[in-house]
Simulated assay, not measured.
Amino acid sequence: MVIYRGAGFLTLFTPIAALLLLMWLWPDPSVDHGNTSLRQLLFGFAIGAFINVLLGTFLNHGARAPGEPARHHFFYMPMQWPSLAIVVVCAVWGAIRVN
C-alpha cells in the first residue's frame, strides 16, 4: 500500500527542501552554525508548502470521473490539501509563538 501517488511525495519533500535551502542561503545569525530558529523553520516550511499548493493545484486540475482518485495524492487526498494545512499550521503557530 502506497501513501502517495504521482508527485504526492513532494508534500513532504518540498517544505524540507525549502527549509534547507533557506538555511543555506540565509543562515540565521541569532543561532549557532547548523541550527535554525523557529521563525526560520516555520518560514521555510510555509514557503515550501505554498509552492506545493500551487503545484498540486496545477497538476490535479481537470475533470475526474466520480470515484476516481486524484492523479497526485498524499494519504489519499489531493496533494494540495495537506500542503495547505501545513501552511495554515505554520501561520497560526508563527502568530502565536514567534515574537
Rank of each mutant, 00 (worst) to 15 (best):
47 I>V: 12
45 F>K: 00
18 A>S: 12
45 F>G: 00
80 Q>L: 07
40 Q>L: 05
97 R>V: 02
64 R>A: 04
49 A>S: 13
60 N>Q: 07
81 W>H: 07
65 A>I: 07
9 F>N: 03
31 V>E: 06
14 T>H: 03
30 S>Q: 14
83 S>V: 03
43 F>W: 13
41 L>Y: 09
66 P>Q: 06
68 E>C: 01
5 R>W: 09
94 G>P: 01
15 P>W: 10
16 I>C: 13
51 I>N: 03
18 A>W: 01
2 V>A: 12
4 Y>K: 08
38 L>S: 01
76 Y>A: 04
84 L>A: 06
48 G>T: 03
59 L>E: 05
39 R>E: 09
89 V>L: 14
4 Y>A: 08
33 H>P: 13
8 G>N: 12
12 L>M: 10
74 F>V: 02
47 I>L: 13
27 P>K: 04
36 T>L: 05
34 G>I: 05
11 T>C: 14
45 F>M: 15
78 P>Q: 04
90 C>P: 09
56 G>K: 03
43 F>M: 06
34 G>A: 05
99 N>L: 06
48 G>K: 01
82 P>D: 05
18 A>N: 01
45 F>Y: 14
88 V>D: 04
65 A>C: 05
83 S>M: 03
88 V>S: 11
14 T>N: 10
50 F>Q: 03
47 I>S: 04
66 P>V: 03
21 L>V: 12
13 F>A: 09
85 A>D: 09
4 Y>V: 12
84 L>F: 12
3 I>P: 14
34 G>E: 05
26 W>Y: 15
29 P>R: 14
15 P>K: 07
93 W>L: 07
49 A>H: 00
89 V>W: 15
41 L>K: 01
95 A>P: 06
6 G>W: 07
70 A>V: 05
27 P>V: 03
17 A>W: 02
95 A>M: 11
98 V>G: 00
38 L>M: 09
60 N>S: 07
51 I>D: 06
25 L>D: 02
84 L>Y: 06
55 L>S: 02
85 A>I: 12
66 P>C: 02
89 V>D: 02
38 L>P: 01
62 G>V: 07
88 V>W: 14
35 N>Y: 15
8 G>K: 14
78 P>A: 06
3 I>F: 15
